[in-house]
């Protein structure tokens, strides 16, 4: 049985189409990423799966339970961490956790092993009101509360948005350890680099799936030649590369420009072209694409349709 099955789901909010025909399956035990910018439909999809929102059309099930007719069953086995902090701000850390444990008929003690690594980091502050915690600590408390009833499946809606690079890294280490315990995890994120930490991902844009696959397969499907080009002046380099006749796209990536081309060309040819425009210290290296290159490529293709 699949952990998640989604058939042809549509959801609109008045004139805004949030989801337009989503079909997706997630296997038991997978760490599955919904990757996309704001407005892609990630939150709507997670809320439908977490039985908090009805789709306009289509059907979804979690471990065989229907998200509408059998929502009670799903709520027993699912943990949910919403994008916006929604614990009780005027209860302490410990009171929040106790509250969630008791709602699900369990105790902190019974499932302490599951949250130990995360909860230990905020335990010194357990008497502090949740509303007075820092962003990183709130996030850890929210995850602890979502885990305290030992769920089979965990829905995490943008847990790392607005979180700094170090805390993001720590958070993904936690997710990896939860995957080891056998929990199926569906996590959404706007950070493309996090896609490579998932078993499989759905790349989402404006309510549609651009692709669903393992990160390695998505990268394998990239169908342009890709180069990292450098020179002394990044901004002018982007502009000039766009006027090169073999260029499909040129976008900055960190301190280089990623140049995608359809036709093969000799590197000396580009070197000469850029030198002619006054660029210095030019380097041109063929590279493997990352998920972000693939996402941008799929986005452009969708826009062209």
């Amino acid at each position: 049985m699949k952990a998640v099955e989604i058939h042809n789901i549509y959801k609109s909010y008045k004139e805004v189409k949030a989801l337009s025909g989503i079909n997706l399956q997630v296997k038991k035990g997978e760490l599955f990423g919904l990757i996309g910018p704001d407005g892609a439909g990630k939150t709507s999809l997670i809320r439908i799966l977490a039985t908090l929102l009805y789709p306009d059309e289509g059907q979804a099930s979690i471990f065989g339970w229907d998200t509408i007719d059998e929502f009670r069953e799903i709520r027993k086995i699912a943990g949910y961490m919403p994008g916006r902090f929604s614990l009780y701000q005027d209860l302490s850390v410990e009171e929040n956790l106790n509250f969630y444990a008791s709602i699900f008929g369990t105790t902190i003690k019974e499932n302490y092993h599951l949250i130990k690594d995360i909860y230990q980091q905020i335990e010194p502050f357990k008497k502090r009101l949740a509303g007075r915690l820092s962003g990183g600590m709130k996030q850890k408390l929210a995850l602890s509360c979502a885990l305290i009833h030992k769920p089979d499946i965990l829905f995490l809606d943008e847990p790392t948005t607005g979180v700094d690079a170090v805390s993001r890294k720590e958070f993904w280490e936690i997710l990896k350890s939860l995957e080891q315990v056998g929990i199926t995890i569906i996590v959404s994120t706007p950070y493309m680099d996090e896609a490579e930490l998932c078993d499989r991902v759905a790349l989402m844009q404006q309510g549609r799936l651009l692709d669903v696959d393992t990160p390695a397969n998505i990268i394998g499907k990239y169908d342009h030649d890709l180069y990292a080009v450098e020179s002394k002046t990044l901004h002018r380099l982007i502009k000039d590369l766009r006027t090169f006749d073999k260029t499909t796209s040129a976008f900055p990536f960190g301190d280089t420009v990623h140049l995608a081309t359809n036709e093969t060309f000799r590197r000396q040819e580009l070197d000469k072209f850029l030198s002619g425009k006054g660029h210095e210290n030019i380097t041109i290296k063929p590279i493997e694409p990352g998920i972000e290159d693939c996402f941008m490529n799929l986005m452009r293709r969708q826009n062209d349709q």
């Binding site: 704001d38 948005t161 607005g162 706007p190 900055p252 972000e292 996402f295 941008m296 986005m299």
Partner: peptide, 24 residues
């Protein structure tokens, strides 16, 4: 202050071109 948070990867880069123009 985090002007590109949640913005898609193409638009995020277009936004940076506006930043470059303003700087110029």
């Amino acid at each position: 202050d985090e002007p590109t948070s949640g913005v898609d990867p193409i638009t995020r880069r277009q936004f940076w071109e506006l930043i470059y123009e303003a700087s110029e």
